[in-house]
Write a protein that binds this DNA or RNA. Sequence first.
DNA 1: AACGCAGGCAACCGCCGCCCC
DNA 2: GGGGGCGGCGGTTGCCTGCGT
Length: 418
Amino acid sequence: MGRHSCCYKQKLRKGLWSPEEDEKLIKHITKFGHGCWSSVPKLAGLQRCGKSCRLRWINYLRPDLKRGTFSQEEESLIIELHAVLGNRWSQIAAQLPGRTDNEIKNLWNSSIKKKLRQRGIDPSTHKPLSELDNNDEKASNNSKNNNDKTSDLSEISFVEPTSTHHDINSNNIHPEKPTSSAVDIRYPPLIDNAAAAAAPSNSTHHEFFLNRLVATQETSSNSKAADPFLSFQQLNYGPNIGLSINPNANIFFNSASKQSEIISDHFTAANNSMVSASNYCSSILPASNRVNSLAPFSVKFENWDNNNNNNNNNNNGGSFFENNAFTWAAEKEAHAHTAETGMPEDIKWSEYMQTPFLLGNSIHNINPAGQDVYGETPAKLMPFAAEGGGWQQQQQQAAEIYSKHFQGLPAATFGQFS
DNA sequence: AACGCAGGCAACCGCCGCCCC
DNA sequence: GGGGGCGGCGGTTGCCTGCGT
């Protein structure tokens, strides 16, 4: 324990880096790679410790860093991820291409915390401040529960944020009392009116969901090979977040996949099959839940990578999230809207595909030879089978820099959304 | 112009876990 | 098994800058 050995060395510079030092470090790493960080300063001719060099490279000099202010989308994603992961900045950063944990941490401490408080949300517990004020003891327990849960992702349980909604015009959140002490996802984007007007209306929740898909697997990473299923059974997203099923859609699995299958207690769809979601719902779900609920079942993608790993947005025959088979919970709101007003509000999966899905840090990107091509660096997010602009381009750039190839998402298990 | 303050940000510190010998 | 080296992470510090008075 204690100080890193290099820190004992004398005559090492500290503090801000000069442009000359930056240049030396860049030249060295560009030419030779960093290898062992402790040897970098000597080889690069720097009077710094290896740790300092590493930090400077990772946080500032890396070519794939996205400089500049965070987008609203990124902020929202950070908040959502923080609700799940807590202060695990590196894991959060792994979900945001080109951003560093340090950058995100700074943003959180300097900006997001304040914004959340202004909106009546406690940034550490992600619960309404009013609730905390009204019942400190209960809130304390909740906080403890949250910490416990975030310390063990396998036990995370999302609770429906009841009818929390965000009044975009007043920037106020009107939460109702939650029904559980579990992690409470209730974060509409922290958007001001101008940003709301300028930004696309799509949600990041679907990205978040998919990222969780991967992160969850990473959490139980050591069992990745043994257990091809990702467990989402404990995810229970509320009306503003989550995945629901479109009863009119077919779940279609790419015929090129060798062993695509749906496995559940209720049915198994064999290879190359097409499963009617509405049939499924009507057969096993209570009538009240048929429209947009999805009972627990598992989806196994043993050959996912065959169809989705080339960063080329291939649409060669219908991958899992095509065909509007699954839609995000906003559709639920559309149904509610329709029920209330009699006016259809057409929210389709495709509209939620305006930004690409992101596959997160857990999948180390593997080159065609099966080697992790960038060693320790957190894997970058890769474009995922959707057309899109900014984010995707940035991810593409990051991907090209490292020439990485997404290896695969072996399986997914979807939980109940009700 | 000078001063104080707050916010943003880069960098450091201390600890932890993994790996190797 | 234990100790050292090392990378990684989260918390914290301190500098710089912009803004208000």
